[in-house]
């Protein structure tokens, strides 16, 4: 099957006015505007297969949102070729727009003073969804997202989490094949985040929709994406399996041992890098390939009560990736 998304050499530069802080700088900028070129996306290429969930990672300003906006047809790129479901997104053909959705955690499309059900009716008409399909979809989404009772309340009366669920539903009424989710869990509490995550996973499993997701929460990415694309400053740093990221950028393991009683630091010599030693708890960092040997030595040399071997947390790995890029 051909890929759903094909991006080749995507570049998006903006020219933005620039001015210093303060009154004088503001006044000066009124007649003499300085401009600055922002390379939001600077030549990235990747493909996404049908049904795949890909996590799109990067710090603020990395170019994630800009990329999603180009892919969904909102922005014209400066250079590059993009093909989504066989369409060039920024032609904004109706049959393209009917097959995709862009859901932004920080933006709303629902009418603020009306119950979401009324906004759904608007989308039903705009997307030309027929009655039976509409009823079935709303039923399914109501079940998956637990929307009971939320669709008849004015949107302004919903909590942030409830609103996000309803926004998600509004963006999925037309049964899109490709989902662009931009920070769908931002600002939500942990339980609600989990619920949204579980929903996306189930939606993907049941409909086979392709999902490209950005999030600041590594838990979102870990729970949903097998594959991640990491970008920083508009450039692609990594594209591959999530676990491969740790192997490439943080090829070490963290071994934590609880001892029966505290030991002299001298006894720990030669056991890799000691990250911390607090009372009877010792944390050691070691290269991945040496982890078995170090574990063995720890067990042989020390009175170990409990021991765990862990991969470094994803946040730390990502940080490692960006640090590597910036130095």
């Amino acid at each position: 099957m051909p890929p759903d998304i094909r991006v080749h050499g995507l570049v998006k530069h903006y020219v933005v006015p620039e001015r210093g802080a303060g009154l004088r700088a503001s006044l000066r900028s009124v007649w003499r505007r300085r401009r600055r070129l922002v390379r939001a996306v600077d030549g990235i290429s990747f493909e996404v297969a049908p049904g795949e969930i890909v996590g799109f990672l990067g710090p603020n300003g990395a170019g994630k949102t800009t990329s999603l906006k180009v892919l969904s047809g909102l922005l014209h790129p400066t250079h590059g070729r993009v093909d989504v479901l066989g369409f060039t997104p920024w032609d904004r053909r109706a049959d393209f727009l009917a097959r995709i959705t862009l859901i932004m955690g920080q933006r709303q499309q629902l009418f603020w003073d009306l119950p979401a059900g009324d906004s759904f009716q608007v989308n039903k008409a705009v997307f030309g969804i027929d009655d039976a399909v509409f009823r079935r979809t709303v039923g399914l989404l109501t079940e998956l997202l637990e929307l009971d009772g939320l669709l008849t309340k004015p949107v302004r009366q919903l909590s942030l989490g409830e609103r996000m669920k309803v926004e998600l539903a509004a963006g999925l009424l037309h049964g899109p094949r490709v989902l662009f989710l931009d920070e769908p869990t931002i600002g939500l509490d942990v339980t609600m985040q989990q619920r949204i995550r579980a929903f996306v996973a189930r939606y993907n499993a049941e409909t086979g929709a392709t999902v490209l997701l950005t999030s600041h929460y590594m838990a979102d990415v870990k729970a949903l994406a097998q594959r991640v694309i990491v970008i920083d400053r508009g450039r692609l740093l990594y594209d591959g399996a999530l676990h491969g990221l740790a192997e490439r950028y943080a090829p070490h393991k963290t071994i934590t041992v609880h001892l029966e009683q505290p030991v002299d630091p001298a006894e720990l010599r030669g056991l890799g890098e000691i990250v911390s030693q607090e009372g009877a708890q010792v944390t050691v960092r070691t290269r991945k390939d040496e982890a078995p040997a170090v574990t063995g030595q720890l067990l042989a040399r020390l009175p170990v009560a409990d021991l765990s071997v862990e991969d470094p947390p994803l946040e730390e790995v990502i940080e490692q990736v960006f640090r590597g890029n910036r130095t």
């Binding site: 906006k69 969904s72 047809g73 909102l74 904004r92 053909r93 109706a94 049959d95 393209f96 727009l97 009917a98 995709i100 959705t101 862009l102 932004m104 920080q106 933006r107 709303q108 499309q109 989308n123 705009v126 997307f127």
Partner: peptide, 15 residues
């Protein structure tokens, strides 16, 4: 200004 015009452009209808 608020950025929600995006949703207008995402609708398959003459904007």
């Amino acid at each position: 200004r608020e950025g929600t015009f995006d949703y207008m452009l995402l609708k398959p209808a003459p904007s």
